[in-house]
Design a protein around this nucleic acid. Structure first.
Lengths: 237, 237
DNA sequence: CCCCGTTATGTTGGGAGTGATATAACGATG
DNA sequence: CATCGTTATATCACTCCCAACATAACGGGG
């Protein structure tokens, strides 16, 4: 059961999806809208129509010239290239987190101020933020919630390194013990039992794992930023 | 230009998308497949057909009974509810990162071992991992790359807190100065100039901002995990 | 024994998106 | 001035998806 995501950027009613980005990318590499469409196995007429619709609200994305030596051609404008890089960046970031393991901790809300929520859980005190979601009834004190984050957002520390806690950002801090280590390709997934219902997977580099000398049974402290964790009502699950 | 994502879970050829999850959720709250379909404004026949297709490969998701007092009804099975929570968790995590600001730093690869890449950048040395992406030609030494991550993955520290660096995971560490502070709803976006082409936005809680006493002009150290940052070839943008 | 609302199944028609095709305009090159 | 491959535009037919409709089976309750 692997997860995949479809990213799209939307502005003023138009939404640029992956196929649109692919079209722009093909125009950039092929040099003409016609060649781009056939390279992607799409019809020229549709590609052209789609492009004009996009440009109608986004401005000029492709500089098109007809006639001339080779019959003409198309080149990406600065705006088009900028749109492409923006899409690529969001895509890599989002698909990156989609590939990461998900951590879910359940607790009850003790306090809320603004978007910041503090919750009690078997693993300890949790700080996280609410994301102004789609159909998300706002979280309130006393609610049963789950705090979700990704395995790559968690940092591991030696259990006695408490002194530096005050010098950095306020962070979640869970004590636990290593239950499993899975290292491959320079990256290690450390499974940590923090007292929650389910052990927590943590993604670290092999270098970090070696430096901390982590083996099953070792005590560790797992920390993560409050802004990297999201709070949702349990009913919403 | 805001970004939105469509999450879907796929297994054995079937992909469960948001509308499927909504259907299951409606069945859970309405008590019958018929009521669920009409509540969602969808036709019953289609909903039923879709459900059977899903169950064909995922196993029983909904316990259906016909006849009886109220004519029957449908209840989610454990598997169905489990699928629903899994979907919800992935959804909140992914849409959470989609809502966060994207940080992009450009550099050139100096070394690679496994999925871990070390790159040189104007801001300093960067460590990040390659994500086994779609059409991603693997990154190699000498390549011009961009390292992308989200603003919520970056931690801020006082500039003189260097001593604790060795006790925690190997991390990226960029010195810089605060150029802007935007605090609202208990969450602050700190813009930091780290020497890169573009200043870096960092998302912290208002409490952290107050503790570190961050104001424009102040020196800070921005740190982030290597496993939270992705490397992509520059041509791929 | 009838009633009722549900599950189960199939058929039909319409609408949206798209490929395919046709035609015209374009303009540097030879 | 003819050529050529492109852009620009319009139309037609096809496919896919889905709502709508129809029909049957089901079974506890009145």
């Amino acid at each position: 059961m692997d997860t995949d995501v479809a990213v799209s950027l939307t502005a003023d009613g138009v939404t640029v999806d992956a196929s649109d980005a692919a079209l722009l990318r093909a125009v950039d590499s092929e040099g003409s809208l016609n060649a781009a469409a056939t390279a992607l196995g799409r019809s020229y007429s549709r590609a052209h129509k789609r492009l004009t619709v996009l440009e109608e609200t986004l401005g000029s994305l492709v500089e098109r010239e007809r006639g001339g030596a080779g019959g003409g051609g198309s080149v990406l404008t600065d705006r088009g290239r900028e749109l492409l890089t923006q899409f690529a960046r969001v895509h890599t970031v989002v698909s990156g987190t989609a590939a990461a393991d998900v951590i879910a901790l359940s607790g009850t809300v003790r306090e809320r101020s603004g978007r910041l929520v503090t919750a009690e859980s078997p693993a300890g005190e949790l700080h996280a933020i609410v994301v102004g979601g789609d159909r998300d009834p706002s979280v309130d004190t006393g609610d049963d919630v789950t705090v979700t984050l990704t395995a790559d957002a968690v940092t591991l520390q030696e259990p006695d390194a408490t002194l530096s806690a005050t010098r950095t950002s306020a962070r979640n801090r869970l004590r636990g013990t290593v239950t499993a280590v899975d290292e491959r390709d320079g990256v290690a997934t450390i499974t940590v039992d923090v007292g929650a219902a389910t052990p927590v997977p943590v993604l670290v580099t092999a270098a970090s794992r070696a430096r901390l000398d982590l083996e099953p049974g070792d005590p560790v402290v797992a920390t993560f930023k409050a802004t990297a964790a999201r709070v949702t009502r349990l009913s919403e699950e």
